[in-house]
Nucleic acid binder design. Structure first.
Lengths: 338, 338
DNA sequence: CTGTTAGCGCTTTCAC
DNA sequence: GTGAAAGCGCTAACAG
């Protein structure tokens, strides 16, 4: 019989006599036949791979193992169980000239992909991914590319609400521990903060916005420095380092005590536990919920059950009643590898 | 110019004028050209993917997240940093008819692979992988296929030494908590145990070998049952559950106390911490060391710097002086998902 | 140094 | 219901 007949059997199409089909299947089993995935993708089918890439090296934005695993586990359930390959292309310390973090797509290895991390503000690849036309999901928004398929949290809104909350409590000089300088979520934080100040007619002071690295020592140092200025009466920790101890230590070095002579507002990925119980409020970022739902939608898109692009931007919630129990060991979304 | 010239440039081969090369590179950059990985593999090159598969579903042998991550991290360093894709094909609850867990190879997606888990005794796929001819590494041996490229620990030797140690201390009825029934490491344990008994002229009692699941409740129950027999004076815990509490609880329910009226010998993946400090000895299984070295060799093989197959079978070490500190939270190699 | 040609394994189109 | 032929993008062999 001919190649076409075999091809039909392979792809579960009809137009083949039952007897022939059975015979072919028997032979395939006997010879141990498997279709060549490369040839298939060459012909236009595309490999059944879902790819995971990072827009920047793990050294720059050190996504924690916990998160990588969480992503891994979700994709396993959504794609692995349906027989798709899950393909990681995580290139620590830029093997690639920068920008082609989606080479798995260009090379037609992926038929969909997850960009797992914040986008640099000058990113141009995400737009190319969008135009490429396959299902994809970025875990970050990008200014100037609102059509991006994304699942994340509205950091600008979070920063705005946090700042306004403190202004309403009478604060005028509000410091901010900001992460992700040069990245979209960092820019969103800044914008939200400035917008709230402007609305209240407060002149912003750039020196109060402090970029921090993802480690406890740097945190402590920054808090110390900022709080030496006695006019600073409030501090927003939107570093998402979730490190209450570093906040306390930094404040103590500056002779201050959170909840007494300095009001702290913390950001956290968790709703039920406090970064710092003595904080005046905690902003909960439902990032995991957003990403989880994003993955569900991505799977549906990938499997042809729905259409993209995805646009999930969860609004953070300001908890005025901070949970009483403190996060036991900080299980961070980002961990420095020092 | 022709396709071949372009191909040469792509593959960093010489025989192209410098000026032409530069021109081609410029154009490639401009158009955003990327070679089609499927076509390449079709032509015989093979995709630059290292695959990771599990011989059985995660539901049957629940490899812990910690281990998956450890593997992931190692492969990232060894392969990811050199630009290779790391591709997982982990098929929970048998999407495939069983046996084609290496479909990534048959489909020519992988140019090498890691089989990350114990092999079932009736496995036939591993031999086919071996004959396939690409670099691969199995984290288990297989009876009747000694040529397999593997990195693991000699469980038979471990069971033999454990049993002999207890016999020499005067025990005659030695119970055994055994994991991996139906799998190679389970068979090795049994063999080692029986060999030691036979050498000592002790008639084995099958009921003393007890298969346990990877969870604390089942452990406790099994220990309880076994120790109700007052003639049992020694217990080998080679379940590698590393759960001292379950051992203690089971013993207590049977009215026994480890270290007093029952001698326990524990197996552990760690050298410096005790599963049960009151054990009379601990067998250290340098599994991580073996696998780590195996990965190094696999990478060399994959990159053409050395030849396979790999054969790393580390000998366990019997520590008569059990470490004093107990493993804090059991961080298990295998965790049931209940 | 450069161009031509063939063929990898698959699927689709079209003819039988 | 089945077969023949073309072509996907790439590279090796062979001419020019």
């Amino acid at each position: 019989m001919s190649a076409k007949t075999v091809s039909k059997v392979l792809n579960h199409k009809d137009g083949v006599a039952d007897e022939t089909r059975a015979r072919i299947l028997a032979i395939m089993d006997e010879v141990g036949y498997h279709p060549h995935i490369g040839a298939r993708s060459l012909r236009g089918g595309g490999a059944a791979c879902i790819g995971v890439t990072l827009p920047v090296s793990l050294e720059v934005v050190p996504i924690s193992e916990e998160v990588l695993l969480w992503i891994f586990g979700r994709l396993l359930r959504l794609f692995g169980s349906r027989g798709e390959y899950i393909c990681f292309d995580i290139n620590p310390s830029g093997h690639s000239p920068n920008g082609d973090y989606a080479r798995g797509l260009w090379q037609q290895l992926y038929r969909g992909c997850v960009v797992a991390g914040p986008l640099p503000l000058d990113d141009t690849t995400a737009r190319r991914i969008h135009e490429w036309g396959v299902p994809y999901l970025v875990l970050s928004r990008l200014d100037g590319c609102p059509e991006l398929s994304c699942a994340t949290v509205d950091f600008e809104q979070g920063a705005y609400e946090s700042t306004r909350f403190l202004i309403e409590r009478g604060h005028r000089r509000i410091a901010m521990l900001k992460a992700f300088s040069g990245f979209q979520p960092g820019a969103e934080r800044r914008r939200g903060y400035l917008r709230a100040l402007e609305e209240a007619g407060i002149e912003p002071d750039e020196s109060l916005i402090r970029a921090v690295a993802f480690d406890a020592q740097d945190m402590t140092r920054c808090v110390h420095r900022l709080l030496l200025d006695r006019d600073v009466t409030a501090l927003i920790d939107c570093s998402v380092t979730e490190d209450g101890a570093a906040l306390r230590n930094g404040a103590r070095r500056a002779g201050r005590t959170p909840g007494k002579d300095i009001e702290v507002l913390t950001w956290s990925y968790r709703e039920d536990e406090a970064v710092l119980p003595e904080a005046c409020a905690q902003l909960w970022l439902p990032q995991f919920d957003a990403v989880g739902e994003g993955f569900d939608e991505l799977a549906a898109w990938f499997h042809g059950e729905s259409e993209g692009p995805i646009h999930i931007v969860y609004r953070p919630t300001l908890l005025e009643k901070v949970p009483e129990t403190e996060i036991a060991r900080p299980r961070r979304l980002f961990t420095s590898q020092t």
